[in-house]
Nucleic acid binder design. Structure first.
Lengths: 199, 199
DNA sequence: TCATATACGGAACAATGTTCCGTTTAACAA
DNA sequence: TTGTTAAACGGAACATTGTTCCGTATATGA
């Protein structure tokens, strides 16, 4: 028995780590398919674990929802960095805005859960903003500096605007509404570029 | 066995009518105390009936929620007529806006249920609007005609504005936030009067 | 007063969140 | 490699709902 870098007692057992990941992955899929109210048993089954295993790591249903949400936020925010590294500033910006758009659309069910009044979700809006706002700020700043976007747009305003656009056009959940949404978002991205100006 | 005016077969039994009313009244109270997710058993108990009785008249939980909501809307809309009859136009307007304010505050839990995506509640926003908008329009028109309010305010806009005000200030549910809310609403009512103008 | 359609109450059933515990196994030392 | 053991596992069992069923009670009309 030895202490790890953080001072906790023991190493996480390999199967435990594997299962935690499997559960989160399964939950993401099931939530997307059946909504956030999907039965815990269904998630456990999809992950190939027993409900006991699931509950040891996520004592309350809401813990699992929160974990999935944060994981998705982290993934989307991380993509901002990746895109910024791999693409020219303007393109990185517009690619990420589409990525963000997908995030919003797939989290439709989650969004309503956030406003359900359950205190378990109180921290999520902050988590959302404190991750996405800096991410977008960086992309915007880089694009503006490169002369590929205007520099007078507030990141949070843009997040909200696109969030509203994306969550509005979701009637049939298939490609029908999505195309319309993407067209609107493209319009907005064009606006960012068209209005560009030298600093 | 005789038909009534609407062509339906039979008269409603007295105990049935009594129980229906008791259930609705109990549901209103319980929803206010424990939220719209309160157990059906709790409502049945408060109404002094068995769950079977409750379910005969409201086959789904949501039917009960809808019925309570509509009943509250009806009551609030009816009060508009009563106030218009018993008070001078300007006073009737301002009294009813406070009444409406209370409606919004006590229906906080219900409001989130409306946007839960459950199709059972799809009709409620329309019901809300088609009752309240004409009610307020009448009050506004009368007050404007009497020179006690401006005449360039859209009823629905005002409903939304005050609805937002009232539903915003509801942190502790006690008198704390309510006072602040009422002050804002009073401000708005003053605005209606201050800005009055002859037609 | 009687017959009966109607309504009633609450037990029973189904679905789901959560807990419990006997069994399995990863990790470590000899 | 093998033995020991704390950790993790699975899923049965329990608790809390929504909903259904049905034997019993009763309001109504004749």
């Amino acid at each position: 028995m030895q202490e790890d870098l953080t001072g906790t007692k023991k190493r996480i057992r390999a199967d435990a780590a594997r299962n935690e990941d499997a559960v989160l992955e399964a939950a993401k899929t099931v939530f997307a398919k059946s909504g956030v109210d999907a039965p815990v048993r269904e998630i456990a089954k999809a992950a190939g674990v027993g409900v006991g295993t699931l509950y040891r790591r996520f004592p309350k249903r809401s813990d699992l929802v929160v974990a999935v949400f944060k994981r998705e936020v982290d993934g989307c925010a991380t993509d901002a960095k990746t895109l910024a590294r791999d693409y020219p500033p303007g393109e990185a910006l517009s690619l990420w805005l589409r990525r963000y758009c997908q995030f919003i659309v797939t989290k439709k069910g989650l969004a309503s859960a956030l406003h359900s009044g359950d205190p378990a979700f109180d921290a999520l809006p902050d988590y959302f903003r404190s991750n996405f706002e800096p991410a977008l700020e960086n992309l915007l700043a880089a694009a503006a500096k490169a002369g590929e976007a205007r520099s007078d747009i507030d990141a949070y305003d843009l997040l909200r605007a696109i969030g509203n656009l994306a969550s509005a056009g979701r009637k049939s959940a298939d490609t029908e509404g999505m195309e319309h949404t993407y067209r609107m978002v493209d319009l907005m991205i064009d606006g960012l570029r068209f209005g560009k100006r030298a600093d």
